[in-house]
Design a binder for these strands. Structure first.
Lengths: 108, 108
DNA sequence: ATAATAGTTAAGTATGTACTTGAGTATTAT
DNA sequence: ATAATACTCAAGTACATACTTAACTATTAT
C-alpha cells in the first residue's frame, strides 16, 4: 500500500486551499451535515461538495450518508500526515527558534 | 494584525506544491545555492527560481546573494505557522473524540 | 400523491499555476 | 579583454482548479 506516501501530496494540496481549510476549521468544532457546513461559505452547495470530495479522498475527512443527509467529520490521523512531514523538516536549530522569544531576538 | 493570518494562506499554498516541498526537504539538510538546489529537480533553473520566490514571499525560506551566488536556507519559524494551524485542529478533534458518544447523539 | 429538502452530477467558464524559452545582467575565472 | 558562471526577467503556453448553472436522484414531510 502506498496509501500514506501518496497521500502526503494530496493532503498538502487539499490544505493549500483556504476554503477547504475553513471547512476543516469548522469541522474541528464537531461533525455536521453538508448544508450546515456550507452555510458560512459564500459559494454554492455544489462547490462545497466538490471540496468535500477532495478532503475525503486524501483522508482528512470522513462522511457517511443516512437517509438524504450526509454527515461530515474530521478523520483522526489525516492531519497527522502533514504534521509529521513538518516535524521532519525542523532541524534542531529550528526547533529552538520555534519559540517566540527567539523570534523576537532575530533582527530584520 | 492579520499579517500572520494572511501568511497562513500563502504558507499552505506554498506547501501544496510537491516541487516546493521537495525543495524544503532538500534545504532542511542545510543551506545551498540556487543551482545546487535545482540539480536533482528535472525542471529549468528559471522554474526553480520562481518556486523560490513563492517560498521566500511566504516566509518559509530566506535567501541572500553574495557576488553572483544566491544562498538559500530555511527560515526558522516559517513552518511553525503551518504546524500551529494543524495543532489547533488536532486539539479540537481530540477533545471531541473524548465525547464521541455525545456526538453520535447530537441532534440537528 | 405532491411538494419540499438534501445532496449529486455533468458541463462549461474563467482564472491561476507551473512550466518553458530566450534574452539579459552581474560576477568571477582565464 | 574574453569567456564562463550564476542567476534574473519577460512573455507565452498548456494544463489544473475553483467555481457556476442547471438538471437530476433520493428521501422526508404534508
Amino acid at each position: 500500500m502506498n496509501g500514506k506516501q501518496a497521500n502526503i501530496d494530496s493532503v498538502f494540496h487539499a490544505l493549500g486551499d483556504s476554503t477547504r481549510r475553513a471547512m476543516m476549521e469548522r469541522l474541528s468544532e464537531g461533525p455536521m451535515t453538508v448544508s450546515r457546513l456550507a452555510e458560512p461559505l459564500s459559494i454554492t452547495l455544489a462547490a462545497v461538495v466538490q471540496h468535500l470530495q477532495v478532503l475525503e479522498e486524501c483522508g482528512l475527512v470522513k462522511t457517511e450518508k443516512h437517509g438524504r443527509v450526509r454527515t461530515c467529520r474530521i478523520e483522526p490521523g489525516g492531519l497527522a500526515v502533514a504534521r509529521e512531514w513538518i516535524d521532519k523538516r525542523r532541524t534542531s536549530w529550528e526547533e529552538r527558534l520555534d519559540r517566540l522569544d527567539v523570534l523576537l531576538a532575530e533582527p530584520e
